[in-house]
Design a protein around this nucleic acid. Structure first.
Length: 561
RNA sequence: UGAGGGAUCGUCUAGUGGCAGGACGACGGGUUCUGGCCCCGUUAACCUAGGUUCGAAUCCUAGUCCCUCAGCCA
């Protein structure tokens, strides 16, 4: 069971008092005008999670009332993302556009009750009549039209007699209301635009404030959860339902998710995609669910994350380290361990026979013995990580350096005797080491210990692959906090993507399936990219690094120096 | 300067009149064939000022700061 929060407290009480006959009915109501991101995941987990925990149901409802922005492509991507996250709406897949006829009838009812009128004012005029935050608005000259005239005009709006923007249907509330939203809000506008589901059946479309509450009402929602920016809308939500005297759910607002080093506004995300700054909506650096999925995150990791961050009414920004922790936790338990060398440095085992090779046993996951083991080839020429060798070992260095002995994971102890350099550049291009045949499998009978254990691959057997290393898309903790005139895109991390074309991995990985996840020993978790991999030629995305204690030690050593 | 909301460790979040707890991070240690995982420990908070009370994060009063709203978007 998820930790408690103020919404659970409300539902607990409602269940106890029988307010909704013990029912819990929620809904996730996206507009199909873009891709879902990690912020939506919070809402999805909340709505479906609550319904699940209280024995209720959660609907998937598309709030598709603005045909100029919506499409089936978005509907499909949203459904795929919700399903991927692990939630099931069964047959309850609803569309506000399916309610258009009933919504129209409700509007007519409102007109007949003298609670709505057709206004001929232009958008500009409506804005002027609305007043300001501190001054009241004034009534439209068309506000006093008779019910009959309003009915006639509204019918003709529907019939397509008028141009876009010529007239709107407005609720007749109070032009002096302190809440601007209550100053005769627009209920219907004319848009001669084809809708992706209703095609050309309609040329008038209902506004959010009219549609959402009534859709909730139609679906007998009990708790209508939305984000804080809709607090102002609640008064109107309640007004519409009261005016029509229909079933009346309770709207409850919670704070949307913000993440450090990340932007989550739809506008900014679109800008990144359209500007070609990222490789589409599913770029592994994007906070979209499709991007996160391609990056290698698991649904369970996202769900755990959403549970951990909690739900409250205060604006807050979650440290992205918590997201990273969640995926490490899942992958540590479930990802198969393999060896990969990102920046290969050649190692020749000088006392190992040239024509010999052997296979060594390697466990697939120490966290899960049932994952079994595999055999990996060993031979005279190997690759190790360039970073694992230093000509001059710093303090606390456990790895390879001249004269140092280390363990090759699952293999042998080796001792570095010589670093061969390029005569021109002075760069170390090869290491000459000797191995101890008595340490096969990585154990020494004489009980001597080595501090360091390195990952490696056999040169002759290794497969060359491309690996993509990702870092936060934004260097700044809060990319939204930009000085006047500055563009948020200036905060983009120039090193957020690093492509390494010449990495070496264990031979078995040549056939790794797209989407499959591994731990590259001592490096991090990696996932086979579904977009750029080809059969026999996988491309690996780094999901997240392993925690790196040595990097911290080194950093603090540098700071002291 | 209208209306509606919100302030608890560095971050996120519990607590609703009775020992301010958890998670992440940071720091230190133990363990280890991954400088991973795991384990142990340390650090560290009630926006301010009054009041009520035996006792206040919680109730009252007055402030301060932050967020949202002037789309025919959602």
């Amino acid at each position: 069971m998820a930790p408690s929060n103020f919404i659970r407290a409300i539902i607990d009480e409602d269940v106890e008092t029988g307010k909704w006959d013990g029912r819990v009915m929620t809904r996730f109501p996206p507009e199909p005008n873009g891709y879902l991101h990690i912020g939506h995941a919070k809402s999805i987990c909340l709505n479906f999670g609550l319904a699940n925990d209280f024995g209720g149901r959660c609907n998937l409802r598309f709030d598709d009332t603005d045909p100029s922005k919506e499409s089936m492509e978005y509907v499909e991507s949203i459904k795929a993302d919700v399903r991927w996250l692990g939630f099931d709406w069964q047959d309850r897949e609803y569309y506000a556009s399916d309610y258009f006829e009933r919504l129209y009838d409700y509007a007519v009812t409102l007109i007949k009750a003298g609670k709505a009128y057709v206004d001929d004012l232009s958008p500009e005029e409506i804005r002027q009549y609305r007043g300001t935050l501190t001054e009241p608005g004034k009534n439209s000259p068309y506000r006093g039209r008779s019910v009959a005239e309003n009915l006639d005009l509204f019918t003709r709006m529907r019939d397509g007699e008028f141009e876009d923007g010529a007239r709107v249907l407005r609720a007749k509330i109070d032009m002096a209301a302190p809440n601007l939203l209550m100053r005769d809000p627009t209920l219907y506008r004319i848009k001669h635009v084809s809708h992706y589901r209703t095609a050309d059946r309609w040329c008038i479309y209902p506004m959010y404030d009219f549609t959402h509450c009534l859709s909730d009402s139609i679906e007998k929602i009990t708790h209508s959860l939305c984000t804080l920016e809709f607090e102002i809308n609640r008064e109107l939500y309640d007004w519409v339902l009261d005016a029509l005297a229909v079933y009346h759910p309770q709207q409850i607002e919670f704070a949307r998710l913000n993440l450090t080093h990340t932007v989550l506004s739809k506008r900014k995300l679109i800008e990144l995609v359209k500007g070609g700054i990222v490789d589409g909506w599913d770029d592994p650096r994007m906070p979209t669910l499709s991007g996160i999925r391609r990056r290698g995150y698991t649904p369970a990791a996202i769900r755990n994350f959403c549970e951990r961050i909690g739900v409250a009414k205060a604006n807050s920004t979650v440290d992205i380290a918590l997201l990273e922790h969640s995926v490490r936790e899942d992958l540590n338990q479930n990802a198969m361990r393999v060896m990969a060398v990102l920046n290969p440095l050649k190692v020749v085992i000088t006392n190992y026979p040239e024509d010999r090779q052997e296979e060594l046993e390697a466990d697939n996951n120490p966290e899960n013995p049932s994952a079994g083991s595999r055999r990996i080839p060993f031979s005279r020429v190997l690759y190790v990580e360039r970073d694992d060798f230093r000509e001059e070992a710093p303090r606390k260095w456990f790895r390879l350096a001249p004269g140092r002995e280390v363990r090759l994971k699952h293999a042998y102890y080796i001792t570095c005797n010589e670093a061969v350099k390029d005569e021109q550049t002075g760069e170390v291009i090869e290491l000459h080491c000797t191995y101890d045949p008595q340490t096969r499998g990585g154990w020494s009978q004489d009980g001597r210990k080595v501090k360091g254990t390195l990952h490696w691959v056999s040169s002759a057997h290794a497969v060359e692959v491309e690996v993509r290393l990702y870092d936060h898309l934004f260097s700044k903790e809060d990319p939204n906090a930009v000085a006047g005139g500055e563009d948020f895109k200036e905060g983009i991390n120039p090193d957020s993507l690093q492509i390494l074309p010449n990495c070496r991995v264990e031979p078995a990985l040549a056939d790794a399936k797209p989407g499959s996840r591994y731990q590259f020993l001592r490096l991090g978790y990696f996932c086979v990219d579904p977009k750029y991999s080809a059969p026999g030629k996988p491309v690996f995305n780094r999901t997240v690094t392993l925690r790196d204690t040595w990097a911290k030690i080194e950093k603090s050593q540098k700071n002291k120096a």
